[in-house]
Design a protein around this nucleic acid. Structure first.
Lengths: 209, 209
DNA sequence: CCGCTGGGTTAACGGTCACTAACTGCACCG
DNA sequence: CGGTGCAGTTAGTGACCGTTAACCCAGCGG
């Protein structure tokens, strides 16, 4: 799996990532992607710097050319996920003609993300506690805003249902949608997406008391 | 939080766990309980032996009087959870008059367990990968049997729905039910239990098609 | 009263990990 | 063609962790 001779390592790197001129900071993304997979599989503390380096064809401390440390890497990863989910949600809600379509769009967006990036979704709701304090608050804030986007749409859709109940229902639906990594390849992705969306839809409808 | 003077530690231990004669191997359970909370919060590799010892009023290596090691502790914890879920499920299914009641009972059992032991549920589906091989297979087998108990009930209830789809739906419902730790105290437990059951019910009904 | 056992203590050891230091080579720019 | 900077390398360091060793003490049965 690992390439040992230095020259061979260099060759593998070049062949897998085109010529170096096209590499405008794309190495960071490559590292983040590999780290996401490892973190999802073995947990943040179960993965070493050497593991991450090895996964992208370099060895260990090369990583410090791109990130200030292991925790900073995780922080950037989770911050990016939270931002993508949140901005996608606000855009979808503002563009939707009514609450009904807004909910459908939110569902579509979340399912799509969960199916496309199962490792990121897994790490996102497991490893917040491993992020150091400055960045942790920003991530939590974005996560809260994301949830609140759902809750306001649901509030409009199911008035008379108390917001705490809607919040709990939203968290439950996230658990349902994020179950993707556990039932990896039971179904083809398109079928899986449709299944998750309809299950979530029905679950939310049943949540109004 | 932690007691420092030895005499005080001893006193705290005695007061929290009655007199020693009544302690017939209950210390193991106490350690398992504390370890579950720590593992759920920070992950298996993010918790040290010293942390676990400190959480039960002893310091570090005292743990080896009760378990052969850290991995063995985790293995016993997950094996116990898997067994409880599985035996409870088989009992409930065999005692139920029909598939409809069987599903209700399965739901009731899982929700009750998840609400009573959120840390155990969390660790149960996160840290399987940290269990060494001899025990890992046994746990996986029990988990698979537990899922299959649900799938057979659902197969009887929704014939014509292919088993892979029912399996994926079951995993999704587990994700929903296990979301409890994320929405800790949004609602009173009884309300939460009812909410989760009805959401799961509706989600499963929507899964057939 | 003695010795055994169960459950605790501190000290120490070997391994691993995150991170740093020092060095190297390639690419690009003037 | 020389210098600058980016992205690697290996070696080393201090901290921490899991585990073992050696010792200690309370309770109890004979």
């Amino acid at each position: 799996m690992l390439v040992i001779i230095n020259a061979t390592v260099y060759h593998a790197r070049v062949t897998t990532a085109q010529t170096s001129t096209r590499n405008r900071g794309s190495r960071r993304a490559e590292i983040l992607d590999a780290a996401a997979g490892l973190f999802a599989a073995r947990g943040f503390h179960g993965v070493s710097i050497e593991d991450i380096g090895g996964a992208v064809g370099t060895s260990g401390p090369a990583l410090y050319r791109h990130f200030s440390g292991k925790e900073a890497l995780l922080a950037e990863m989770l911050l990016d996920v939270s931002e993508r989910l949140h901005t996608s949600a606000t855009r979808r809600v503002t563009e939707a003609p009514d609450a009904e379509h807004a909910l459908d769009s939110l569902l579509q967006g979340h399912v799509e993300f969960a199916l496309d990036h199962p490792a990121l979704i897994t790490v996102h709701d497991r490893e917040l506690g491993s992020v150091p304090e400055p960045a942790r608050r920003r991530i939590r804030r974005l996560q809260r805003l994301y949830v609140e986007e759902w809750v306001t749409v649901l509030s409009e859709l199911y008035p008379g249902c108390p917001p705490p109940r809607l919040r709990a229902a939203t968290h439950a639906v996230f658990g349902l949608l994020n179950s993707t990594p556990h039932s990896a390849d039971e179904l083809p992705p398109a079928t899986m997406a449709e299944l998750l969306r309809s299950m979530a839809r029905a679950a939310l409808a049943a949540a109004q008391s």
